[in-house]
Computed example of a mutant assay.
Amino acid sequence: MIEQNSDQASGRDRTLLIVDDDKPFLTRLGRAMESRGFSVEIAETVAEGVDRVAKLPPAYAVVDMRLEDGNGLDVIEALHKARPDARAIVLTGYGNIATAVNAIKLGAVDYLAKPADADDVYNALVADGDIKAPPPENPMSADRVRWEHIQRVYELCGRNVSETARRLNMHRRTLQRILAKRAPR
């Protein structure tokens, strides 16, 4: 269970919930946030995250969008209902505008693409509401964002090339060429 810690300098509660199904990333980010003064609690599933929020809502949260048992936005929504002043950010390897808008509507304060480093996460968590966090040093290229989106739609279509091409409104052979290439940097 999370213990309520107060940051002596700001008087702010420094409890943080991190929800991600990538265990090595979860462990690294948890340690990095502890070294920055947060009292960290971790969860690997939506169910664990929602349960932790119900028991003791944290002041901060970092939640992966896609988890094995569902959508991380369910955790964001539960946190926003339990503690409206909490600052939550969403991490995802499949960024798109619709999910970013939805995350913000449900109470997230920022939306970061994976792989996000601890500095980017920290800056997004503690940024003043009126001041935007500085842009990342190495953001994904437009080609990479396009490739990620195509991969996501391909996976959601059950790896069916014809259906994916239809939904993306592109020629099937063009899609096959894109899928055969490596991910751009």
Results as ranks from 00 to 15, higher is better:
Met1Gln: 12
Asp7Phe: 01
Asp7Thr: 01
Gln8Asn: 06
Ser10Thr: 15
Asp13Pro: 13
Asp13Arg: 05
Thr15Trp: 10
Thr15Arg: 15
Thr15Ala: 13
Leu16Lys: 06
Val19Lys: 13
Asp22Pro: 09
Lys23Ser: 06
Lys23His: 06
Phe25Pro: 04
Arg28Cys: 11
Arg31Phe: 13
Met33Pro: 03
Met33Cys: 02
Ser35Glu: 12
Gly37Ala: 01
Glu41Arg: 07
Ala43Ile: 08
Glu44Leu: 04
Glu44His: 07
Val46Asp: 02
Val46Pro: 02
Glu48Lys: 12
Glu48Asp: 10
Glu48Cys: 02
Gly49Tyr: 02
Gly49Asp: 00
Asp51Gly: 14
Ala54Lys: 15
Ala54Tyr: 14
Lys55Tyr: 05
Pro58Glu: 15
Ala59Met: 03
Ala59Arg: 01
Tyr60Thr: 14
Val62Ala: 15
Arg66Val: 15
Asn71Lys: 04
Asn71Gly: 04
Asn71Ser: 15
Asn71Ala: 05
Leu73Pro: 00
Leu73Asn: 00
Ala78Lys: 10
His80Ala: 12
Ala82Gly: 06
Pro84Arg: 07
Pro84Val: 07
Ala88Ser: 03
Ile89Thr: 01
Val90Ile: 11
Val90Ala: 03
Gly95Cys: 07
Ala98Asp: 15
Ala98Asn: 13
Thr99Val: 09
Ala100Met: 03
Val101Tyr: 06
Val101Leu: 11
Val101Cys: 04
Ile104Asp: 03
Leu106Glu: 07
Gly107Cys: 09
Ala108Phe: 02
Val109Met: 03
Asp110Lys: 00
Asp110Glu: 02
Ala113Lys: 11
Asp117Val: 04
Asp117Trp: 00
Asp120Val: 11
Val121Trp: 03
Tyr122Glu: 09
Ala124Thr: 01
Val126Asp: 01
Ala127Leu: 07
Asp128Leu: 06
Ala133Ser: 12
Pro135His: 07
Ser141Lys: 11
Arg144Gly: 05
Arg144Pro: 08
Val145Glu: 05
Arg146Cys: 14
Trp147Asn: 06
Trp147Leu: 06
Ile150Phe: 13
Arg152Tyr: 10
Val153His: 05
Tyr154Met: 08
Cys157Gln: 07
Arg159Leu: 13
Val161Ala: 11
Glu163Ala: 02
Thr164Lys: 10
Arg166His: 11
Asn169Asp: 12
Arg172Asp: 05
Arg173Asp: 15
Thr174Gln: 08
Gln176Asn: 06
Arg177Asn: 07
Ala180Leu: 05
Arg182Ile: 03
Ala183Ser: 02
Arg185Gly: 08
